[in-house]
Computed example of a mutant assay.
Amino acid sequence: MKDVMGMMKQVQAMQAKMQDLQAELERTEVEGVAGGGLVKVRLTAKGEMKGISVDDSLLKPEEKEIVEDLILAAHNDARAKGDRLMQEKMGALTAGLPIPPGMKLPF
């Protein structure tokens, strides 16, 4: 029984830390860049878009398709950075806990 109680305390502590981490990820911003910096997208680490910047040199009707592709690429870059940040923070949070391999925690 002693092990179960100890594990329950660890789980409760982890839940509190996860709530803090969720709030931190909502405040943390990552930036994705495409086209050598001509297009930039800012997202929270949770994936909410916060801003976009397009260099004036791309604002030509004939460049429309290129701009759209660069926006997608910058968004994907920012999203990947946010995902990596989330994984790093989650790994630090769950270090030392007896979590079975392959178990996914709600995030």
Results as ranks from 00 to 15, higher is better:
Leu38Asn: 01
Val39Trp: 04
Val39Phe: 07
Val41Ser: 06
Arg42Ser: 15
Leu43His: 03
Leu43Glu: 04
Leu43Ile: 06
Thr44Cys: 03
Ala45Ile: 03
Gly47Ser: 08
Glu48His: 12
Ile52Val: 14
Ser53Trp: 14
Ser53Lys: 15
Val54Trp: 14
Val54Cys: 11
Val54Ile: 15
Asp55Met: 05
Asp56Phe: 01
Asp56Asn: 10
Asp56Cys: 01
Ser57Val: 13
Ser57Gln: 11
Leu58Gly: 05
Leu58Asn: 07
Leu59Asp: 12
Lys60Trp: 05
Pro61Thr: 06
Pro61Ser: 11
Pro61Phe: 02
Glu62Arg: 13
Lys64Val: 15
Ile66Gly: 00
Ile66Tyr: 02
Val67Cys: 14
Asp69Asn: 10
Leu70Phe: 05
Ile71Thr: 03
Ile71Pro: 07
Ile71Ala: 03
Ile71Gly: 03
Ala73Trp: 03
His75Lys: 12
Asn76Cys: 07
Asp77Met: 06
Asp77Val: 07
Asp77Lys: 08
Arg79Cys: 00
Arg79Met: 14
Ala80Asp: 08
Ala80Trp: 00
Gly82Phe: 02
Gly82Val: 04
Asp83Met: 09
Asp83Ala: 10
Arg84Asp: 15
Leu85His: 11
Glu88Ser: 11
Glu88Trp: 01
Lys89Gln: 09
Lys89Trp: 01
Lys89His: 02
Met90Thr: 10
Leu93Gln: 02
Leu93Ile: 03
Thr94Glu: 00
Thr94Gln: 00
